[in-house]
C-alpha cells in the first residue's frame, strides 16, 4: 500500500516536471540546436538566451513592469480586503450574503467580458498603458479572492479574543493592528501569495490595457513570437525567468499554501 502510494505520487510528479524540464532544457540551447533535432539535454549549453533577456531593454523593462503592477495590486488588495474580511467573519449586516455573492461573481466572471469596457474606461480616465491600470483591473478578481481567503482564516480565530481585547480597553484599530493581524499572519502571507500569483499569470487584461510603456513580460513574450518569427530559445528563457518569482514566493508560504487553496475553510 505504502509503495503503491509513493509510486502514484512519483508518476504524477514526473508528469508535472517533464514539461517544465523541457522548458529549462530549451532555454540553455541555441536556436540551431533546438531546431536541429531532439536532444534530451543541451549538448552545447549556452547562456545567450538569458543574456538577451537581461541586456535588451524591451525584455528587462517588461519584467520590471510586471513586478510593479503585481506588487501594487497585492498591496491594494490586501489593504481593502483585510477590514472587509473581518466584517464578514464577525458580523451580520444588511445584505451581507448578497454582498459576498456579488464579490464572488466578480472572481468568476471571465476577464474577456470586461475587456472592452476596461479599455474604454482606462483610456477615458487617462490611465491606459500605465501599471496602475493593470493593477486596478486585476483587483476585479483578486480583491474578492483575498476577502474570501482571509474570511476563512479569520473565522478560525475564536471570537472571545476580540471580546477580551475590547474589555481590556483596546479600540478597534489598535486591536486590529496589534493583536488580530499578528494572529492571522499565515493567512495574510497566503493571501499575498495568491494575489501575486493570479496577477502574475494573467495575460488578457494585462495585454489589452498596455501598449508600449507599461508592457508586461507576458505580453512581451507573445509579441516577440508574432513579430520576428519564433525565437524558441529566448522564449524558453523568458518562460523560466517568469517562473522564478512564483517559486521564490511559494517557498515562504509552503506550510500554509494548502490551506490557502482551500480558501482557509477546512
Amino acid at each position: 500500500m505504502r509503495l503503491r502510494k509513493s509510486l502514484v505520487m512519483l508518476i504524477y510528479l514526473l508528469f508535472v516536471l517533464v514539461p517544465i524540464y523541457w522548458l529549462v532544457n530549451m532555454s540553455f540551447k541555441s536556436n540551431r540546436e533546438i531546431l536541429g533535432g531532439l536532444t534530451l539535454w543541451p549538448t552545447a549549453p549556452t547562456l545567450d538566451n538569458y543574456r538577451v533577456i537581461f541586456t535588451e531593454p524591451t525584455w528587462y523593462t517588461s519584467y520590471l513592469n510586471s513586478l510593479s503592477y503585481v506588487s501594487m495590486n497585492m498591496l491594494i488588495s490586501l489593504l481593502v480586503a483585510l477590514p472587509a474580511a473581518y466584517a464578514f467573519s464577525r458580523y451580520r449586516f444588511l445584505g451581507d450574503k448578497h454582498m459576498f455573492f456579488w464579490l464572488l461573481t466578480n472572481r468568476m466572471a471571465p476577464p474577456a467580458v470586461f475587456l472592452l469596457p476596461f479599455f474604454q474606461l482606462y483610456s477615458a480616465v487617462g490611465l491606459f498603458d500605465t501599471p496602475i491600470a493593470v493593477a486596478l483591473a486585476h483587483c476585479l478578481f483578486n480583491v474578492p479572492l483575498a476577502v474570501w481567503i482571509l474570511e476563512g482564516f479569520m473565522s478560525s480565530v475564536p471570537k472571545e479574543i476580540d471580546e477580551t481585547a475590547y474589555i481590556d480597553g483596546y479600540t478597534f484599530p489598535k486591536f486590529f493592528i496589534k493583536i488580530f493581524l499578528p494572529m492571522i499572519r499565515p493567512g495574510i502571507g497566503v493571501t499575498a501569495f495568491f494575489c501575486f500569483m493570479f496577477s502574475w499569470v494573467e495575460l488578457l487584461l494585462a495585454r489589452t490595457l498596455t501598449s508600449v510603456d507599461a508592457k508586461p513580460i507576458v505580453a512581451q513574450m507573445t509579441r516577440t513570437v508574432s513579430a520576428s518569427g519564433i525565437d524558441w530559445g529566448v522564449l524558453a528563457a523568458a518562460g523560466v525567468v517568469a517562473l522564478l518569482p512564483g517559486i521564490a514566493v511559494i517557498y515562504f508560504v509552503r506550510n500554509h499554501v494548502a490551506k490557502g487553496f482551500a480558501l482557509g475553510r477546512v
Partner: peptide, 9 residues
C-alpha cells in the same frame, strides 16, 4: 509549480 507558470508560458 504548474500553478505558478504564467498562462501564456
Amino acid at each position: 509549480l504548474p500553478l505558478l507558470v504564467p498562462w501564456n508560458v
